[in-house]
Design a binder for these strands. Sequence first.
DNA 1: TATTAGCACTCACCTTAAATGAGTGCCAAG
DNA 2: CTTGGCACTCATTTAAGGTGAGTGCTAATA
Lengths: 351, 351
Amino acid sequence: MINESHDKILSDRAQYLLKVLVERYIRDGEPVGSRTLSKDSGLDLSPASIRNIMADLEELGLIVSPHTSAGRVPTVKGYRLFVDTLLKVKPLDEQEVRLMRSHLDPAETSPQQLLASASGLLSAITRMTGVVTLPKREQASWRHIEFMPLAENRVLVILVLVDGEVQNRVLHLERGYDAAALQQISNYLNSHFAGRDLSELRRGLLNELNRTRESMNELMHAAITMADKVFQVRGGEPTYMMAGETNLMEFAELSDVEKLRRLFDAFNHKRDILTLLDKCIAAEGVQIFIGEESGYKVLDEVSVVSAPYSMGEGVVGVLGVIGPTRMAYERVIPIVDVTARLLSAALNPRK
Amino acid sequence: MINESHDKILSDRAQYLLKVLVERYIRDGEPVGSRTLSKDSGLDLSPASIRNIMADLEELGLIVSPHTSAGRVPTVKGYRLFVDTLLKVKPLDEQEVRLMRSHLDPAETSPQQLLASASGLLSAITRMTGVVTLPKREQASWRHIEFMPLAENRVLVILVLVDGEVQNRVLHLERGYDAAALQQISNYLNSHFAGRDLSELRRGLLNELNRTRESMNELMHAAITMADKVFQVRGGEPTYMMAGETNLMEFAELSDVEKLRRLFDAFNHKRDILTLLDKCIAAEGVQIFIGEESGYKVLDEVSVVSAPYSMGEGVVGVLGVIGPTRMAYERVIPIVDVTARLLSAALNPRK
DNA sequence: TATTAGCACTCACCTTAAATGAGTGCCAAG
DNA sequence: CTTGGCACTCATTTAAGGTGAGTGCTAATA
């Protein structure tokens, strides 16, 4: 009775059986029993022996049975072991990659459209939900700014970033400026600051403000405070693009309307999903959150497979796939990986 | 046996009973039987008499029983009669209107945001799905256009409309232009054509093209063909904003995942919904499509209540609510009506 | 003629019980 | 260590009976 099985290293055979079990469960979604496993494994073992091993696996918390007389199902820990050490990701074949590349054409008119294509592609190819976070732009630089008067002291700001993305917002000011004044302000900012990195811009502005404190005319002062306002509120809250949400309705484990509703609500509120995806932006390659690992209750029954993509210098966003824990990881992982690479390439036609 | 009931005019009493039945069914979603109706109606009639009348109503196709021993449920025809002649829409009380108005603040920074607020408001207040089509802009005029060179013969076009909305798109051209040339082109277009109505613009352009055929320098020619390109493809396909899709999951009649999936897919494909909503743009006030009336199979189980809204001169878009056929029309109708008015008012601060 | 009471009938829905069968744990023998 | 055997568990299925809401019809009543 000495508990020597507690941190017992899994035998190769046990690991192999876990692998077979997970694969089988992923394939058809039903608890797999000892007899099935015995046949499926190809090993020459009787169901009874399999049962012994399964008992070990259960003791280690890698599998559970949903109820007494059902087969076993992988736990999160089981999936984790599976994807971390048992899984063989077979690279996509050339033809698939070519197909994917054709959907992420760098000649696509705008980066925005590229991102939309990427999430659509992920969703279409995996038949699950594709998601792409919009680029963090702290280190992006802008190339042109334009101001335009609106009614009642409001000013429309148009900001063009180097990659051709256009942002616009409306500023409420204390006083109005006429078109000519605004034109001067635009000119001043464009000639002095265009091309600067957004994060270093504010420092530059403050410097300028100090340096020229006395000599400065009112217009320049206005220009600088206005620019400050613009870049202060930059971009609103970050967000993402999704595609294929409805695909998730096909999966039996989500066929409960209440669960679906919670999941979709989470998609709409975005906050949880975003903070989760943000964790991946630091990581190097593909990241996987299985079920409850994510830490969000709504995501208990789904897994997220993600990978960062880059633009210009560094990583700026994350893309991925959301689907049931019981997803075909060995397929999804390379798909996400390749999509991230292709997107990065498409976003950097220069290189 | 002479069929004199065939196009019999409904007695007042029968109509009244239909009204009570529909109201009751809307209230708690279950088939209503003769006994319930007898009590609910307030009339001093026994269930047996009610049954006779219900038989008449059924013969006229206004109600049906889902199965032999259930109560009766309104048919589409029944709902139609109900909303057309039986329904008393009570106007919203002052307080509600004030609340709604506060959510559609004309000081809202951009029209886009106003539309988003409107659909959000509709969804929040009805607990169903709110939808707002984006304005048709054929008659809108623009106030400023700007071109900016991108890599590889592509040009970024920024178009500012009079209401402050900004549109941008990318043109692929046969040859490249440098920043200076594009600047000249912008200047030319802005000084000659800004403020023109978009629909008459192309005519103006063609005239100009003919008038100055020989005397024209290459740049002007480029300007005109470019502008033509811009305004030709104006705006991509029309679309709409939605809010509260997930609210529909609460309704029992849509608790079937398969139905939900089809409905949500329809929302995503937009085409059917848009053509349906477009029909309403011509109508004066509130329009109602009940179930299959819409002509789209996916919408069989839902109703659409819509009203057009205006901006500047005429009607430019439609907003509305999508919910189960069994919705509280007497509440939804005034809500949609008022929202349309408030939105129109907010979009026309001048007037 | 309109209304009503009475009655037989239908049918969804619930409860109960029994049968089924996949799967398990454990033990003793190989 | 492996295996056959065996008793046991328990979700799932099937059948059967009971319940009750609701109906249509008929005949009596006002």
